[in-house]
């Protein structure tokens, strides 16, 4: 009986925020042009999780991308999903992984706050606010 209670409690306690999304920011951008969203994901659980989609009403199209270097040239390509290993972090940062915001619906000016939803396979939907910065 005691084991059952422990199992029951552990299941419900463990459904808390195992995935944290921190330090979210968006680069300034003009309506009709593109920008990028950056953040840090901490997976505090004992299992891997996968980020597979990001949505917002700020842009017509949103995709996850990575910047790559090839013979001293820089390019970018789409990334369909990103796995965050147990007790690990993945950082979306300039020159690396970023969420590409294409055809912005309005100007993004410094200190604006923009809402996004990040979709994880295990954690589910995570709502975040990102601050617009100029760098």
């Amino acid at each position: 009986m005691l084991l059952l209670i422990i199992a029951f409690v552990s299941v419900f306690v463990s459904t808390g925020n195992k995935v944290e999304v921190k330090d979210a920011w968006v680069r300034t951008g003009a309506a009709g042009l593109n920008s990028a969203l950056y953040f840090k994901i901490n997976n505090n659980s004992e299992n891997p999780d996968t980020l597979y989609k990001v949505t917002s009403n700020i842009a017509q199209h949103i995709q996850m991308h990575e910047t790559y270097k090839k013979n001293d040239m820089m390019g970018m390509r789409e990334v369909k999903s990103i796995i965050i290993q147990p007790n690990s972090s993945v950082e979306f940062k300039p020159g690396s992984y970023h969420v590409m915001l294409m055809d912005l619906n309005k100007d993004l000016k410094e200190k604006d706050e923009i809402n996004f939803i990040l979709y994880f396979k295990s954690e589910g939907d995570v709502n975040i606010k990102a601050i617009v910065r100029s760098n």
């Binding site: 680069r27 042009l33 920008s35 990028a36 970018m76 020159g95 970023h98 294409m102 100029s134």
Partner: peptide, 16 residues
């Protein structure tokens, strides 16, 4: 190019 979301704005910001 202005449609570049990542590398080019970094360069623009560095110039700024």
């Amino acid at each position: 190019y202005t449609n570049c979301p990542d590398v080019c704005p970094m360069t623009t910001n560095n110039l700024r």
